[in-house]
């Protein structure tokens, strides 16, 4: 049987050898991925944190002021953001960034490149400024896409919880409004969002690719495009393996978070 052969191959994948690339013998897929991983992870992480924070805040506000003007406005903004094609919005933000730079007469936003190597060895503050200038616009773009659907979920689940008996009980006990919302309602209302966010990681990775292309970053998005253009199947497999792992890890974290958020769930 070819069993032994297969085992050999699996053994070689483990330490990071993804197979021969069509982009020449010097192109090692493992090193290429490792080199670019941080660039992309930085963008994905930052935009997810901001999107999550903003989604929870606006979702809760929308739910507490249901059917108010503010709620309608936030809902419409959410719908609009949901309908925006990432790459189109990225193009607009890029053009706006260029306009802004011209207006101020200074390079506030870097609209091209990830700027990883520009500030190497510079003082820490300069490195931070450099990273901020390069990351600000792509992060906003990527953030808005996931923010839209997450804030909708947060609003729905918050509404459901606010109408539940235990929130009424908490109020009846005479707890302060603030305590009821934060400790009783919000904590439970975060559970559905955890699931949605974990699944949404796949969507954020999609968006990251498009954003990286527009802003010409040399991250995993660029790696993916080059691999497709070169018909580099092994590189694509390595890429998919990585993104699959990230999504599964996110789902694992979500499962563990359930137990933290919901006192009824316990993993023995």
């Amino acid at each position: 049987m070819g069993d032994r052969n297969r085992r050999k191959r699996r053994h070689r994948t483990a330490p990071g050898e993804f197979g021969p690339s069509t982009q020449g013998p010097h192109y090692d897929i493992g090193t290429a991925i490792a080199e670019r991983l941080w660039t992309t992870l930085r963008l994905v992480g930052a935009s997810m944190v901001f999107a999550l924070g903003l989604a929870i805040i606006t979702g809760v506000i929308s739910a507490l002021r249901q059917y108010s003007k503010l709620d309608y406005t936030l809902t419409f903004v959410g719908f609009l953001a949901l309908a925006l094609p990432t790459f189109w919005f990225a193009g607009i933000m890029q053009a706006a960034g260029v306009k802004f730079n011209q207006l101020v007469g200074d390079q506030v936003f870097a609209t091209i490149g990830d700027g990883r190597f520009r500030a190497e060895g510079a003082p820490l503050w300069d490195q931070f400024l450099n990273a901020f200038a390069h990351m600000a616009l792509p992060t906003i773009v990527l953030m808005l896409i996931s923010f839209a659907s997450w804030s909708r979920y947060q609003r729905t689940s918050m509404l459901e919880v606010m109408n539940s008996d235990y929130v009424r009980l908490a109020r009846a006990k005479g707890l302060r409004n603030h305590t009821v919302i934060r400790r009783h309602a919000l904590r439970t209302a975060l559970i559905p969002l955890t699931t949605v966010v974990a699944i949404g990681v796949a969507g954020v990775i999609d968006g990251a690719i498009l954003t990286e292309v527009v802003f010409q970053w040399r991250g995993l998005g660029d790696f993916f495009i080059t691999a497709v253009d070169n018909n580099d199947s092994f590189a694509l497999m390595g890429w998919l393996l990585l993104s699959g792992t990230i999504v599964i890890l996110a789902n694992l974290v979500a499962d563990l978070l359930y137990a933290v958020l919901d006192p009824r769930i316990r993993y023995e």
Partner: peptide
Amino acid sequence: FLIVPLLVAAAAIAGN
């Protein structure tokens, strides 16, 4: 099928 990013998978197949 759910853990594979939709755009990525579709683009990879279409391109390849």
